[in-house]
Structure formats: C-alpha cells, structure tokens
Design a protein around this nucleic acid. Structure first.
Length: 226
DNA sequence: CCAGACGTTGTT
DNA sequence: GTCTGG
DNA sequence: CCAGACGTTGTT
DNA sequence: GTCTGG
C-alpha cells in the first residue's frame, strides 16, 4: 500500500515536469502522513492543469461528517471503478499526486523495517489519485486517495501492494475529464516497471510523523537492504 | 420497504 | 484490541 | 503508514 | 448518493 511518501521537488521544477503555468510556494516534505495536506494536480476547464492542496484520506461528498469511519487513504485499482466511495471520483475527479519517493514497512519477525523507494532517474513520479469535495454549512474539505495495485517484483520483496505510478505518457489521459470508460482507464493502473525504482532500508525515525527532513531518506549502513 | 454500510492491510 | 491523530 | 491514547471528577 | 442485507 502507500501510507507515507515524499514531495520534495521545488515548485519551478514541478511546473516544468508537469506542464503547469503556476505553482504555489512549496515546502519540501519527506514524511507525509494520512490526514495531512498533499499537493495534487487536476485539470481545469480550459484544459489547464492546476495545482491544489488536498487532505489525504478521501471524504465522499455524501458523507455526513468531514471524516470517514474507515480508511480511505488508498483505493484498490482492481475495484475502484465499482466501490461506492470511489466510483464517481474515478469517473470525474482523477488527479496526479507528484511524489519523489515513498516508504513501505517490511515485517521482520515482530519488528517492522522501513524502506524508502525512489525514482532511479531522480525525476518526480506521478501517483494516480482521486479527489472529492465535501461541503456542509459553508465548510469545504477537498480530499484525495492514492490508488494501489499489486507490487512489482522489486517491491514484492517488502510488501505485496504498491502505489500506482503512472507512465508519463499516460498522465494526460488520467487527467482527461472526457475519458470516463473504465476499460480505457484501468489499463493505466498496472504496476510500474522495476527499472523505474530503487529501494533501500532507512531508519525507524520515519515512523514518527513529526520527523521530517531529507535525513529520513538516508540509507542504513547495517546491511538490511534486500 | 428501511437500515446500514460505504475501506485497506495484515494476521489468525 | 481498537480508535484517533499526525 | 505508525504512535499513542484508551476515563471521570473536581480543583486551579 | 448508492448498494447490500434483512
């Protein structure tokens, strides 16, 4: 799955990578946790891409409270087109979530060892995401979820699920609001090639959400790598 | 019909 | 064990 | 995802 | 809102 990730690329670099006209000021973040704000990209009317900040953990528009009684930080690619919580968003409110890496935990006996996974080429990845807008009594909460799929052979050493990392050539289609056919969209949600990513073990400092900095990505020097 | 869920993962 | 907060 | 709380009353 | 279970 995907329960922590990194957004560290500067605004100007992101604007170039994702063809954005404007970007808000960004603070690099190395330990984004559920419930926190996430930078996401969506399509606006004249076909422009727009950056926005979304709460991580999708709150459906029909929810009575601006929260859910269950976890919506991830949506399974295999079933996202049918699930009541995600179906409308899947057809109408898809987004890209830029990421410079993510963390997964491997069970080692009774211990849990965190690993960092990041792009080999150093360029930001795009997670496939969905967003929704919740509104009651003038209170507005925009929120998102990250799609997950079967782990590729690299990630499978750690965990059996991983975020959907889109092929850059599919990013425009994922954002295109005129595409609503699951038969067209679902093939974009395959596990990414192992060649795009590298994996290494990191300190359990990442476990604590108040820790945030590039040091969280530092490789462990004690031979826990896979 | 109404009531109640609506999710993912891991573990047993 | 389970829920909430980050 | 992990970490940390998980309760009530009365007093300051 | 929409689907499932009773």
């Amino acid at each position: 799955m995907c329960g922590r990730f990194i957004q560290s690329t500067h605004a100007d670099q992101l604007a170039k990578r994702f063809n954005l006209l404007a970007m808000p000021d960004l603070t690099p973040r190395y330990n984004i946790a559920p419930s926190q704000p996430v930078l996401a990209l969506r399509m606006t009317e004249p076909g422009q891409r727009e950056a926005m900040s979304l709460r991580w953990g999708l709150i459906p528009a029909w929810s009575s409270e601006p929260r859910t009684a269950y976890s919506t930080i991830n949506a399974r690619a295999e079933t996202v087109a049918e699930k009541p919580t995600y179906r409308q968003a899947f057809r109408q409110r898809r987004c890209l979530i830029p990421a410079d890496g993510f963390y997964e935990w491997r069970n080692v006996g009774s211990r849990k060892q965190p690993y960092c996974i990041a792009p080999v080429n150093g360029r930001p990845l795009a997670f496939a995401g969905l967003w929704d807008r919740w509104e009651r009594d003038g209170q507005v909460v925009e929120s998102c979820t990250i799609l997950v799929t079967q782990a590729n052979a690299l990630i499978a050493r750690i965990h059996d699920r991983m975020p959907v990392i889109l092929d850059p050539k599919d990013e425009a289609a994922w954002l295109d609001p005129t595409i609503t056919d699951p038969a067209v969209l679902k093939p974009l949600l395959a596990p990414c090639p192992v060649e795009w990513l590298r994996v290494w073990s990191v300190s359990t400092a990442v476990n604590t959400t108040r820790h945030d900095g590039p040091e969280l990505m530092a490789p462990l020097q004690v031979g826990l790598d896979l």
